[in-house]
Nucleic acid binder design. Sequence first.
DNA 1: GAGTGGTCTAGACCACTGT
DNA 2: CAGTGGTCTAGACCACTCT
Lengths: 244, 244
Amino acid sequence: MTKGLAKPSARPLFAQIEELIVDRVRAGEWKPGEPLPSESEFAQFYGVSQGTVRKAVAQMAADNLVMRFRGKGTFVVSHTDEREHSHFFHIHDDSCQKILPSSQQISCSKSRATPVIERRLQVQANAEVVVIERLRTFAGAARIFETIVVAGATFPNLCADLSESPANELYPLYESLYGIRVVRAEERLKAVAADDREAEFLGVQPGTPLLEIDRVAMTYGDVPVEWRRSRCNTADHFYLSLLR
Amino acid sequence: MTKGLAKPSARPLFAQIEELIVDRVRAGEWKPGEPLPSESEFAQFYGVSQGTVRKAVAQMAADNLVMRFRGKGTFVVSHTDEREHSHFFHIHDDSCQKILPSSQQISCSKSRATPVIERRLQVQANAEVVVIERLRTFAGAARIFETIVVAGATFPNLCADLSESPANELYPLYESLYGIRVVRAEERLKAVAADDREAEFLGVQPGTPLLEIDRVAMTYGDVPVEWRRSRCNTADHFYLSLLR
DNA sequence: GAGTGGTCTAGACCACTGT
DNA sequence: CAGTGGTCTAGACCACTCT
């Protein structure tokens, strides 16, 4: 009957509603795992039809920000969820089974951002950062040497937190201890030669080809959270990429 | 008012309509680049509401089977489209520009399927296949050595076709000459050492780390069409993978 | 102006989960 | 049972394209 908010805006109503709800999720109004208000509640609150709210929330579900269950409700996704474990991990073994590696920490220390880190993490020149080195193992064999860098300002006590409760997966920890949810990532893949240190940790000859995965993980609004460089021995494994 | 087809089926109506329309596209009722009937025509034809057709066709658009333009209509996508060029090509240079390589054919010949080809291309043991070798060049430098295998039964005259009209991109050619549309692909990435032949073509030392991309390209219904192994010198380039 | 896809509404019915 | 999300319908209006 009436157009509702009747804004002369170019953006569709459902996209505006989506943005409003995403902002509230982002602000922590509902924590990971908690239910959002129902469609009808949102519709009443924003003065739009239920169909418009549905389209907004459906888009959030497609973006993996929320999960919907018929008869139960809509819930903020959490890296703590079983099904979210290893969401960004794409290594499979040669028989095409998805791998769940264990992690062993080599070091954790504070340092200063190098130029490449400044650019990829979008931090100030010479900013304080936390650097973690880890070795990841599948089926008893060390396969990945991993260097992880996060901003010290954002994760002030990460090394202490990790020594208190060693974590196999870091993203659930970022979420539970620092309230930061990784929602997307960009990975750049190259083939490189193992240097001496990597070769020793991975038990291969220096110069052995390794698959380098250079990842920037981002939270809402494409804000970088973590830079990670994984060097993988892909003798018995591969990185799976599905294109449509 | 009425439920329409009123099937007691578990699958939603829109999904059934989608399947019916996809089957017709697949059968070639509308060729790549041609317009589909309008939403209202489909709605009348199938005896469902326009909204249900909309949902079906929207899903096809999300799967990249069709493209929709307001005021114009819905069109079967074609690899001949400008914007579909290099749709499955994910190599960028280190300044993050997407690369459009040129291709130089090294060889094209008929051969017999090896066990790995049988499995990946899902052809009979010892089936006739066409094997193409190509060298791909960016900015004057050879960067990718590529081996391509397709079923001989499906592409009987491919070598002759290629010598007649050398093609930089093969998928538009599969589509225009054989009516086969590649709609999705699975890529497996590894780091490998260059063998002597690859090293010579790529101008590197044997043993140099190369990024291997092992791709199976598929048409409708996940039927394999082509197997391709690309070995890339990633000294100045990377493979981009976006995770959400 | 007629036809296209895109948005928005309002209401009905369904399947499912909780109590 | 009331409440949730999921499907389907019917109709209105809009922005855009072609003729």
